[in-house]
Design a protein around this nucleic acid. Structure first.
Length: 213
DNA sequence: CGGCTTTGACCCGCGC
DNA sequence: GCGCGGGTCAAAGCCG
């Protein structure tokens, strides 16, 4: 846990670790985001002091956002091309066997939901993505000195999961894998949007209610 | 007291 | 069939 919990590293009271809301869905940081969103995303990224370097995805590229139309899936991924995992060859992530199994929909928990993985450079392993996550497991994985943490969306009825682990080759990077689509609105949902005068398209104007700022 | 993390045990699929 | 490894469960304990 790079992110120092507000409380002791043991025990509860760590809702603050991931329950705050000031971060756009990770997919929105990926390359190929529509121009309307980029300025806001860049600003958010700077605010988060994060550097998104890689955007990994399963065959279906879709952000785990729950707000229809609020975020646009990256268009960089060509459906005709297989999912490219930049670091897979270097053994960074994910393990080839795991990725193959995931993409084949195999394994105990069949991968039938959308999966999206990305790598960030951050001291915090817990990216504040606006959702409230509950940790349900921690596992040391082979070929990696760093443990893998398992989180589940704590919202009742929402089965979205995410795995978080540090890049074995560069611990300054955090690899996060989201699985599933939230079926509810994020606590950090955009409270207001603005309309671009030129294009008439709406884009994210803020992640917090203006009156609350 | 509710909600969370921790952590060892367990389950299950896959490769040999 | 067996062992390995990843993913999940659940009891225990902590904190606000």
């Amino acid at each position: 846990m790079a992110r120092p919990h507000a409380t002791a590293p043991h025990g509860g009271g760590s809702r603050s670790s991931s329950a705050t809301s000031s971060f756009a869905p990770p997919a929105a940081f990926g390359e190929g985001v529509t121009g309307d969103l980029l300025p806001q995303l860049r600003q958010l990224r700077q605010q988060q002091h994060l550097a998104i370097f890689d955007y990994l995805s399963d065959d279906q590229v879709r952000p785990p956002a729950t707000v229809p139309g609020a975020f646009v899936a990256p268009s960089a991924m060509d459906p005709a091309e297989p999912a490219v995992v930049p670091d897979a060859a270097a053994g960074c992530y994910p393990p080839p066997r795991t990725m193959a199994a995931a993409m084949a929909g195999e394994g105990r928990a069949r991968i039938t939901t959308d999966r999206i993985a990305f790598r960030t450079r951050s001291d915090d392993e817990i990216l504040d993505d606006g959702y409230k996550w509950r940790k349900y497991g921690k596992k040391s994985v082979k070929n990696s000195p760093n443990p893998r943490n398992y989180y589940r969306c704590s919202t009742e009825g929402c089965n979205v999961k995410k795995r978080v682990e540090r890049d074995k080759n560069d611990p300054s990077y955090v690899v996060t894998t989201y699985e599933g689509i939230h079926n509810h609105v994020s606590p950090g949902t955009v409270y207001y949007a603005a309309q671009d005068a030129a294009s008439g398209r709406f884009f994210v104007a803020g992640m917090h209610h203006p009156e609350l700022n």
